[in-house]
Design a binder for these strands. Structure first.
Length: 364
DNA sequence: GTTCTAGAAC
DNA sequence: GTTCTAGAAC
């Protein structure tokens, strides 16, 4: 956030006054602590105390004051129509602004603080330490342990020839028949287009895709997402035949969900060992486009050339993305996942996740 | 002119 | 899931 005010006070109108007003008296005192006055071309970074309304409401952590060239003879350092001087000061102002911003960013250090155990949940948290001694906590994962025992352990695990019918599916027509059959049988599921069949083929015959898989077990296979939406983005595919989306998940799958979660967590931890700055979320899409229930393990940087549109962003940053731990909780208590109507979620206006909500969640 | 969006095709 | 494209919207 940038404030243009040579006096560094709430005076004046427009944006400057609005920011001071929104930030409360905390901004003024934080600024005074740093600097008394600013000349054109210079910037000053004021860390906002957590008591500031701007901090609590909008998670603004710093305000950067910067003063541009002044053409008003009523104020100090008037340009007096010196165009070149004006350009120089404007350049300095931007440079100072970005240097100030860079100083905030580079002073942020991410440190894993390790696992913490309590009676029911295992949390792996990352601590962000900023130069103004405020700490943020970002949950990368929580896991319900108590639920494991409630699972009936009757997971319909696919074991090679155990389910002979599965092996005969080679074209989409047969698959549709299969899908249709399941729909009447389970009153769930949906028809899957040919594009959505790949994961199914992979879990049926993982040996044929060995080169593309990171891990193969009886319950799940792990692979890199073909179109990763972040620096690290892997999928944990369930191998259970007929388990394609959250709507299909029932209590009997709890144990499987836990296993998938553990596998996903293991990969997240591996990636964190390589780069401690990453933050991960593990979760499911409310309405996936591909067969076979798959857990997304995705770093929260969203730095990827494959993240191209609003839908991509929203699929990981709205409630369309269901955290794995929440799904397990819901299945455990209600026997089914909570599915909201998804029509508008993917076309919602772009916005960052509400850090404030996160903080409350993580403190709870 | 551009960006956005929905639909078709794969 | 992706890409392509036409039409809408700006």
């Amino acid at each position: 956030m940038m404030v243009l005010s040579w006096q560094l006070n709430p005076g004046g109108g427009g944006v400057n006054a609005a920011i001071f007003s929104a930030a409360g008296p905390e901004l003024e005192s934080a600024t005074k602590e740093k600097v008394q006055s600013l000349s054109p071309g210079n910037a000053a970074v004021a860390p906002l105390p957590s008591s500031s309304p701007l901090f609590t409401r909008e998670c603004v952590t710093h305000v950067i004051h910067v003063v541009g060239p002044n053409m008003n003879p009523q104020r100090p350092n008037c340009l007096n129509n010196d165009y070149n001087k004006g350009c120089k000061i404007l350049q300095d102002a931007y440079t100072s602004l970005f240097e100030g911003f860079a100083s905030i960013v580079t002073n942020l250090t991410w440190q894993p603080v390790g696992k913490t155990e309590n009676l029911e949940r295992k949390s792996l948290m990352l601590q962000v330490q900023s130069n103004c001694s405020r700490n943020y906590f970002k949950k990368i994962d929580q896991k319900s342990k108590r639920d494991v025992d409630h699972g009936s352990a009757k997971s319909k695990k696919y074991k090679g020839t155990q389910d002979g019918s599965g092996l005969t599916f080679t074209d989409s027509r047969d698959e549709n028949v299969d899908s249709e059959h399941r729909r009447t049988e389970r009153s769930m599921s949906k028809a899957w287009g040919s594009w959505g069949q790949a994961p199914h083929q992979i879990v049926m015959h993982p040996e044929k895709h060995k080169d593309d898989l990171l891990e193969i077990s009886d319950d799940a296979v792990v692979l890199n997402d073909m179109y990763p939406k972040a620096q690290k983005h892997v999928l944990v595919l369930a191998r259970t035949v007929g388990l394609d989306c959250l709507a299909d998940v029932q209590k009997e799958h709890l144990q499987l969900l836990n296993k998938m979660h553990d596998v996903g967590l293991k990969w997240a931890e591996k990636f964190l060992n390589e780069n401690a700055a990453l933050v991960f979320r593990l979760g499911y899409h409310m309405e996936p486009s591909m067969r076979q229930l798959h857990l997304h393990v995705i770093s929260q940087d969203f730095q990827s050339t494959h993240l191209k549109n609003k839908k991509h962003w929203n699929s990981f940053n709205t409630t369309f993305f269901h955290d794995s731990v929440d799904v397990m909780d819901e299945i455990s208590s209600d026997g089914k996942a909570t599915l909201k109507d998804d029509d508008k979620l993917l076309s919602m206006e772009l916005r960052c996740l509400d850090v404030e909500v996160d903080l409350q969640t993580y403190r709870a």
